[in-house]
Design a protein around this nucleic acid. Structure first.
Lengths: 138, 138
DNA sequence: CATTGTTTATTAGCAAGCTAATTATATCAA
DNA sequence: TTGATATAATTAGCTTGCTAATAAACAATG
């Protein structure tokens, strides 16, 4: 019964979070998920699409489509690798780099909202339990 | 930093859960999310699509599409309401009713996996914190 | 009773994410 | 060097989920 509720709550929280992000990101001309891809590039440019797949834990076609969309918006650019003609590397444009701050702001705002009224000790415990759950699934 | 991790963990857990469900439900010829719609009908048949929207917290076109898909698979049927010609009510077929047990089994299995190694007291606390988060977002 | 507004559902069209199938390049082995 | 195999990316086609626009039935108001 409790377990059932936890599963349902997880579902409710994550889908609401997704909706909220979707709405907030729209003002930056981003779709939900694209912020995650950009985030990887902010910490390491020139990643191959396969590397992005691994980091984002999604399938190659998803990355192909997202990169294509981000490229047409002028946030990233693609270049064929010199050494290996199969791989294409993804780079940020200036416009893409400039999104870092506004996106980080959205993240912070949403995090604060999510964790309101939860004490620091509770947050530590919550993180531990969620780490456990994440491990259980992988 | 902790808050950031919690947000990331939430994302990781929910997307992994979704993928796992997707895979498990495929064996029943269901897509992820369709189990949720069926679940509402298992507890109350003949719901209107607007009611389903409210329960599932999604938009009308989403329900239209899901019901259409479930109908073409023979899991539900639709009937125009006698009193109000605008509303269409959704009913389970025998085939749809028979899915209850196998789907419930998938849920139980996945819940157990998710919460492995987490003590009963911890589960109680986890539920409380997640309830808080769910409220914070709504 | 006709007009105006509201509610229910649908259609069109988009992106995320998937699987399956395909293309193109590399690599390895005979 | 050729032939088989592996890897990177793409395309096609699907469902979920969304928004915007539309259709259809009902309600209310003059």
């Amino acid at each position: 019964m409790i377990d059932d509720e936890i599963r349902e709550l997880l579902d409710r929280i994550s889908s609401k979070m997704r909706r909220d992000y979707s709405e907030l990101l729209r003002e930056l001309n981003l779709h939900v998920g694209q912020d995650q891809l950009l985030c990887r590039l902010w910490s390491e440019e020139g990643m191959t699409q396969i590397q992005l797949c691994e980091r984002l834990k999604c399938e190659p076609p998803t990355v192909t489509n997202m990169v294509k969309a981000l490229e047409s918006q002028g946030f990233v650019s693609r270049e064929r690798d010199q050494a290996d003609g199969r791989v294409s590397r993804v780079y940020l444009t200036l416009k893409g780099r400039e999104l870092h701050e506004p996106v980080a702001h959205i993240w912070r705002k949403q995090q604060e909202k999510l964790l309101e009224g939860i004490l620091p000790e509770e947050r530590l415990l919550l993180r531990r339990l969620m780490k456990q759950m994440a491990e259980n699934l992988s």
